[in-house]
Design a protein around this nucleic acid. Structure first.
Ligand code: FES
Ligand code: FES
Lengths: 147, 147
DNA sequence: CCTAATTCAGATTAATCAGTCTTAAATTAA
DNA sequence: TTAATTTAAGACTGATTAATCTGAATTAGG
C-alpha cells in the first residue's frame, strides 16, 4: 500500500510530534535508534519532508529536525503525498492511464469511492491526534517498543 | 496498491471471462496482444493462477487458458490473494509486525476498518459481474481499447 | 509420423527500490 | 580558533521486481 520510505517518514513524523515541545529539535540519530530505522536512509526521507514544508532542520550540536507547523495542522495525507506522490489517490486500481478522465475500467466506480474515503481519512488524521494517542495510550511506533 | 503482476493477472482474468464461452480456451498470445502485456511475463502470471486453481490450461493448437470454474464463483479477491499474497489485507499500514495481535499502531483502528471494507468489496466483485460490464458497457481493460 | 501451435521451465537482463558508506558543510561551545 | 556535533549530498551496493530470451514438452491435425 505505502512505500517503505513513506512508512518510515510517517513513523518518524509521529515520533517527532510526540517528543518535541515548543520548537525543540530532535536529532535524526535519536529517531533512527528509537524506531529502528537506518540513520542515513531516514536522513534522506526527512530531507524530503523538509523540502516539502512539513519539517524544518537545523545543523550542529543541539540540532535536528522539528515540525514546521503546529502538529494539529499537519495531516498524514500531506506526508504521504510528499513521499509517495499525489497520484496514489488518483490512479486506477488496474493501472490504466487517465482514471476519471478517459473510459473507466470495470472497477472504477467501487474503487474511486473507496479511494476517496481513504484519502479523507488520511486528511483527518493529524499528527497531533496520532502523537497524542502514542503519548497517552498503549500504542506503538516501533517493533520493539522503545517508548 | 497492487503489484504489476497482480494488475496484469486481474485484467487478463476479466478478459478471459469476457471472451470465453462454455470452456473454450483463449490463447495467452491473444490476451497479451489485446491487453498490451508482455507475452512471456503474462505466461508466468497465468501459470500461477493455474496453480492457484483459478484457471486451467491446455497446450497445443487451439489451446490456451480458461477459467477453472464459472466466472460467477471467482472473485478478484481470490486472484489478488494468489498473486500478491494474503497479507495485504492483514498487514499494518505502518509496516509493524503483528497487526491485530500485538500492540496496535496509532492508525490501527481506522486502517483495519477500511482494509476490511476493501477486502469485502473485492470479495463481492466476481469475474462475471466485471466481465459483464466490459461486454455490455463502454468500459475498457487496456490503454488503447482493442475491444 | 511430422509439423505447427501452444503452454511450461529456466536462465538472463533491466529497472526500481532499499540501504550503506564517505565526505562536505554548517553550527555550537569551549 | 578549534573541536565536536549534526544535517546535506552524492556515490555506491544489494535486494526485489519487472521483463526478456531460449529451449523443452505437449497436443492437434494432416
Ligand atoms: S479507471 Fe480504473 S479505477 Fe478509475
Ligand atoms: S497495527 Fe498498524 S494497522 Fe494494525
Amino acid at each position: 500500500m505505502l512505500s517503505g520510505s513513506c512508512i518510515y517518514g510517517l513513523r518518524a513524523a509521529i515520533y517527532v510530534a510526540a517528543h518535541t515541545s515548543n520548537d525543540s529539535y530532535v536529532s535524526i540519530r535519536e529517531i533512527s535508534e528509537k524506531l529502528g530505522i537506518s540513520f542515513h536512509f531516514l536522513t534522506k526521507i526527512l530531507q524530503r519532508l523538509t523540502e516539502g514544508g512539513v519539517m524544518k532542520s537545523h545543523r550542529g550540536p543541539g540540532g535536528g529536525v522539528t515540525l514546521a507547523r503546529p502538529a494539529a495542522r499537519i495531516s498524514i495525507l500531506e506526508i504521504v503525498e510528499i513521499l509517495d506522490g499525489p497520484d496514489i489517490f488518483r490512479s486506477c486500481i488496474l493501472g490504466l492511464p487517465g482514471c476519471g478522465e478517459l473510459q473507466p475500467c470495470p472497477l472504477h466506480k467501487e474503487w474511486s469511492q473507496y479511494r476517496e474515503r481513504l484519502r479523507s481519512m488520511f486528511g483527518r488524521s493529524t499528527l497531533s491526534r496520532l502523537a497524542g494517542k502514542v503519548s497517552e495510550g498503549r500504542l506503538r511506533l516501533a517493533d520493539v517498543p522503545g517508548k
